[in-house]
Each structure stands twice: as C-alpha cells, then as structure tokens.
Simulated assay, not measured.
Amino acid sequence: MMPLRTLIFTSVMLPWILSSAAKDEYMEARKPKRDIENFPDNGFPQDSDTDQAAPKAYELPTCLLCVCLSGSVYCEDVNPEMSAVPALPKETAYLYARFNKITKIRNKDFADMATLRRIDLSENLIAEIEDGAFSKLPDLEELTLAENRLTKLPTLPTKLVLFNANFNKLKTQGVKATAFKKLTRLAYLYLGNNELTAVPQLPESLRVVHLHDNKISTITDETFCKGNTSHYIRTNMDEVRLDGNPLKLSQHPNSFICLHSLPVGWYN
C-alpha cells in the first residue's frame, strides 16, 4: 500500500507537471513557422538560387540578353544559349545575332519588323528557313547567313543590296534558278563554299559574285553574258570568283567576253 506522504506528493505535483507541459506545447504552437534551412558541411546555409535551373534565353527580355542601342540590337554569343530569334523592339533597323545556336527562322520571327534594313545571322546552326520568313521586310538591304547549315534558300526581299550565304550546304535543287534574277538592286552576292553544281541567273546590278569552292562543272555563254550578241558589255560586274570548282575556264572562251576582267579560277 502507497505511503501517505507519497500519495500527497503525487496528488499535488502531477497536475502541476501536466499543466506546465500543456503550456509549453501551446507556446510552441504559437511560434511563427520558418522554412527549414539546410546547412552543408561547411556550416553555411546554401543559396537557394543555386538549386534552381538557370533561366533560358527565351524567358528573358531581349534587351536584357542583348545590347539595344537606338535601332540596333546586338545579340552576339548570348549566354544562356540563344536557339531562336528573340522578340525585337519595334524600331529595330539592324540586327546582329552572330555566334549563337539558332536552328530555324520562322515566318513569325520578322513578321512585324518592317523597319529592318540589315540582318546578320552568321555562325549559327540554321538548317531551315520558312519560305515567307523575309517576305514582310520591304526595306531589308543586307542579309548575311554565312556559316550555317542551309541546303536551300527561301524567297528573298527584292531590295537586297548584299546577300551572303558563304559556308553553307546549299545545293542547286535548293536554290531556284531565278532566286536572284528579280533582285534589281543586288550588288554583292556571296555563295562560296557550298555544294552548287550550276550558276543561278544573275541580275544586271551585280558588281561582285563569289561562287568559289562549289561543284560547278560547266557554264554557258549565257551564264554571265548574252551569247547572241558580241556588243553586250556587263558594265557593273567587277569581280567573279570561280576558283575551287571542277571547271576549266579556258574551255569557255565566249562565256566572259562581256566582262571587264576574267573570272578568278582555273584556266590550265
């Protein structure tokens, strides 16, 4: 049987202990909740930003990724990697987006950019351009697509003065014979280091045409001149490059009689 002293102590202290525990539990519940912080071995809290994936280029404003200066947008070697043409400010006249990972040009990329006069997309990974991608650029004068992966060309703006597609994979079946014929202001045409087997029709406005390092094996009297007349002189043409083709130029003596100077190429 429990002694009287123990019974009295228990009856007095037990309610006090229970009351104190209940009070502590209540006070703990009232404390504001805080996020649990994980501390690595060095004892410092980890930066929560490092646990999140870096934002992609298309998720950031264009003028945060690029440099925008009074109508010119410079998006060169962008980090994080740029794989598509960014949304451009409405007043953009000059776009330089070289050294990126752009793979495709879509019709919507320049749909509302009638102010564009120059586009440089050199050294990307462009393998496809939708046919209407440049059709709504009435004032575009210079288009550079050098060092990409193109096998064919889209319809080009009629006011182009310079077109550069050097170092691509362009094939004759991907470049219409009349692709440049209607470009009546075109003065500089660069198609070197491709896989062309024929020379497309060339507008009268051309001053320089580079067709070196292709697979062109034959030309005709109509390629540069007009074979039915010896009085025709191609007054604008200053430079023609045909070197690096499987073509012996000395076998075509009447093909250059309208030019100021002979093309650069193999004659022997």
Rank of each mutant, 00 (worst) to 15 (best):
Q52L: 14
Q52M: 10
A53Y: 02
A57S: 14
Y58K: 15
L60H: 00
P61N: 06
T62I: 09
C66D: 08
C66Y: 04
V67D: 13
V67Q: 15
L69P: 00
L69I: 14
S70Q: 09
S70A: 15
S72V: 15
S72A: 15
S72Q: 12
S72N: 10
Y74H: 10
C75A: 10
C75M: 07
E76A: 08
E76Q: 13
D77V: 04
D77F: 09
V78Q: 01
V78A: 01
V78K: 01
N79W: 08
P80H: 01
E81Q: 11
M82P: 05
S83C: 03
A84P: 02
A84H: 11
L88N: 05
K90G: 00
K90T: 10
T92W: 03
Y94G: 00
L95Y: 01
R98Y: 01
R98I: 02
F99H: 11
F99N: 10
F99Y: 13
N100S: 04
K101M: 11
K101A: 13
I102T: 03
I105G: 03
I105E: 03
I105H: 05
R106C: 11
K108M: 13
K108N: 11
D109R: 05
D109C: 11
D109W: 02
F110Y: 09
D112C: 06
A114W: 09
T115N: 15
T115C: 06
T115W: 01
T115M: 14
L116C: 07
L116V: 12
L116D: 03
L116I: 15
R118G: 04
R118N: 08
I119E: 00
I119L: 08
I119V: 15
S122C: 04
N124D: 05
N124G: 05
A127H: 11
E128Q: 09
I129E: 04
D131Q: 11
D131G: 00
D131E: 13
D131A: 02
A133M: 09
A133R: 05
S135K: 14
K136W: 05
L137M: 09
L137H: 06
L137W: 07
D139N: 10
D139V: 14
L140I: 14
E141Y: 04
E141F: 03
L143A: 03
T144P: 00
T144R: 09
T144Q: 10
L145W: 08
L145R: 05
L145C: 05
A146K: 10
A146G: 00
N148F: 12
R149K: 13
R149M: 11
L150C: 03
K152T: 12
T155H: 12
L156I: 12
L156E: 01
P157F: 07
L160W: 06
L160Q: 03
V161N: 10
V161W: 13
L162M: 12
N164D: 15
N164L: 01
A165V: 06
N166K: 07
N166G: 00
F167W: 03
N168Q: 09
N168F: 02
N168K: 06
N168A: 07
K169Y: 08
K169L: 10
K169H: 10
K169C: 07
K171H: 03
A179Y: 00
A179P: 00
K181Y: 07
K182D: 15
L183N: 02
R185E: 13
R185P: 00
L186W: 02
L186G: 04
L186M: 04
Y188S: 06
Y190A: 02
